[in-house]
Computed example of a mutant assay.
Amino acid sequence: MADKKSKLTLVELNKADLAKGRHVLIVESPESRRAVSLNVNVFSMGRHPNNDLILNDPLASRHHATVAWMRYTDDRLKSDYSYWIIDGKGKRKRSRNGIIVNGKKKSLHRLTSGDTVHIGNNIKISYSYIAYSTDNSQFLNYCNEEKAEYNPIFTNDKSYKETAIVDDPGFIEDTIVKD
């Protein structure tokens, strides 16, 4: 009898998967910090302008990594759907410098909330899954493709442009005008 092996298969991401919550990448670089909502089957990252996420790092390859929605089937025929990060375009087309996931160099990794991926010297990507609930529904709607307008729950007309952060508490006491 042949031994059945575990198997990864690229599958379609459907609306029911998105209704449960959002898969979010927080991408940090020296230039910016941004959130990217994953809502496609295949998401590419690298220096080349045709990628979904363009990475500005000299150690990043033209096509450095791929995030793909995949079905994992184990030898007991149990299936699991999740995003996986792949070094380069896969087995035969890896990136030059690889990806570091949670401190270890990997070529393939199933993403779970809290995972961090380092690319080159300057790119840090954090993965989070945010389950849909009434507490975060406004944020998740904001992450939709339609870019729904974000309206804060509390509205006030305060301006924070003049807010200063002071490390020395003595400075505050010296600047308070006393009657």
Rank of each mutant, 00 (worst) to 15 (best):
G90T: 10
V36L: 03
L77P: 02
R22I: 02
L140W: 03
E173G: 13
T66N: 01
K147F: 13
T9A: 14
V27Y: 02
P169F: 09
T66C: 04
F171C: 13
K106D: 06
K4L: 13
G90E: 09
K5E: 06
P49S: 09
S61R: 01
H109C: 14
N151G: 12
Q138V: 05
E145M: 10
V11S: 11
N121F: 01
N144W: 10
Y129D: 01
L10R: 08
A35E: 12
A164H: 05
Y127N: 07
V11Y: 10
S61M: 00
I100D: 02
Y132L: 11
L111D: 09
Y81W: 12
R92G: 09
E28P: 00
E28H: 10
N144E: 14
T66K: 09
S6Y: 07
G21C: 03
K93W: 03
T9S: 13
H118L: 04
N121T: 09
P49G: 08
K161V: 11
L53Y: 03
S79P: 05
R96N: 15
K104N: 00
C143G: 03
N50S: 15
L18I: 13
K7S: 12
T73Y: 04
S133D: 08
S126K: 13
S113A: 15
I165T: 07
S113Y: 05
K78A: 04
N121K: 05
L108W: 13
K104P: 00
G120S: 10
H48E: 02
Y81A: 10
T163M: 15
I85F: 06
E162S: 15
D115R: 09
L8H: 04
F171M: 11
A65I: 04
N102G: 05
V67L: 06
I26C: 01
S6I: 03
V42W: 00
R92A: 01
I86A: 00
S137F: 12
G88H: 00
D74H: 07
G90I: 06
R76G: 03
K147C: 07
D17Y: 03
D135A: 10
V117E: 01
V27K: 10
S6C: 05
K20Q: 07
D3V: 09
V177K: 14
L77W: 06
D57C: 06
A19E: 12
C143R: 07
N51P: 01
S29N: 09
P152R: 06
S95H: 02
M1N: 06
R71T: 12
Q138T: 13
V42Y: 05
L111M: 15
S32W: 05
S32C: 10
H63E: 15
H63K: 14
D167H: 11
